[in-house]
Amino acid sequence: MSDFTNHPVRTIAGKDIADARRDRFILIVTGFIALAALTSLITGAVALSTDVATYNDAKATLLALGKSLDSIAAPEFYPLKLLRGAIEQFEIIGAVLGILAGFRAAVSERGRQTLALIMTRPVKGWQFLAGKYVAGLVLLSTGLLAVFALAALALQLSSGVGLGLGDLSRIGIVWLVASAYVMVFYGLTFILTLWMKRPANALLISFAVWLLVVLVAPQIGDTLDPDNQVAGGVFKQLQVPKAEQDRIKAGYATFETVRNGIEAASITKHFERFSFAVLGIKDTYTGKALGPILVEKQGDFLWIFLTSLGLAVLMIARPINANRLTKE
C-alpha cells in the first residue's frame, strides 16, 4: 500500500494535478471549451425548435382545414445531431488545450530547475516522464468529461427529449476518443518543449502543426471534394445514378487519392469522421446501430489511439537531455 502511495509515477502525477488545480489555468481553458460547446449547442437547439414550430404551425393549419396530417412528414428528431457544432469547436479548442497543457507541464519543470531536483532523486527518467503523462491524461480527460457531461445535460434540457443509455454510451465513446485526441497534442508539445533548446520555439512549432493538422488539411480536403460543392451533394442534387457516379469517380481516382490522403493525414479529420459517425451527426449514420458504426470506423479509432500511444511511448522512452537541466 505504502509502496503504491510513494511510487514515483504516482507521486509526480499527484503533484502535477495538485499544482494544476491550484493555478486554475487548465480549469479556465476547459471552461472556455465548455462555453464554446454550449454556445454551439444552443444555436443548434434554436434552429431545431424553429423547425419544430414550423411543423406544428403546418399541422395546426391542416387540422383547421379538416385535412389529413399524412401530407406532411413529422421532422425526424435526433438530439445527438445537435452536438455537431460542439464537436467542431472541440476539434479546434481541444487541441489548443492539449498544446498549452503539454507546454506548461514541461516548461514549468525546466524554468524552476525542479527537473534537476527530481532527477537527482532515486527516480528513473521514464518514471518522471510517465508521471507527467499520467497527470496530463487525468487532468485533460477529467476536464473533457465535465464538458461532455455538461453538453449532455444541456442537450437534454434544450431538446426536451431524454437521452437514453444508448445515447449516453455514444457520448461516452466520443469522450474517450476525444481524450486520446487531445493527448496527441499534449504529448507532441511536451516532447518538443523538453527536447528543444528554447521552449518558446517548441510552442511555435506546436501551433504550426496545429494550424496544418487542425485547420488547413481538413479544409483542403473538404474544398477539393467535388461532392461538397453543392449542399446535399452534387450527385444527389443532379440525381445521378450510382453506376454513373462510380464511372465518373473512376476517372478522378488519382485526384481522389490525393484529396483523401490530405484529409487522412489530419488526426482532426479522423476524430471528426469517428465522432460524426458515432453520434449520428452525418446523415449516413443517423439512426444506425452503434456496433456496425464502430466496426466501420475502427480505422479512424486506431489512427487516433496509435498516434496518441506512439507519442506517449516516444515521450517516456527518450532520455532527458542533461543540457535542458541547466540554468535558464
Binding site: 499544482d19 491550484r22 524552476r112 530547475q113 525542479t114 531536483l117 537527482t120 532515486p122 527516480v123
Partner: peptide, 20 residues
C-alpha cells in the same frame, strides 16, 4: 540511483512549485 540515494542537491536560484 546508488549515487542519488546518498546525495542532496540545491541548484542556483531554485524556485520549487509556487502554487504548493
Amino acid at each position: 540511483l546508488g549515487v542519488r540515494r546518498e546525495i542532496g542537491y540545491v541548484p542556483e536560484n531554485v524556485r520549487l512549485y509556487d502554487t504548493l
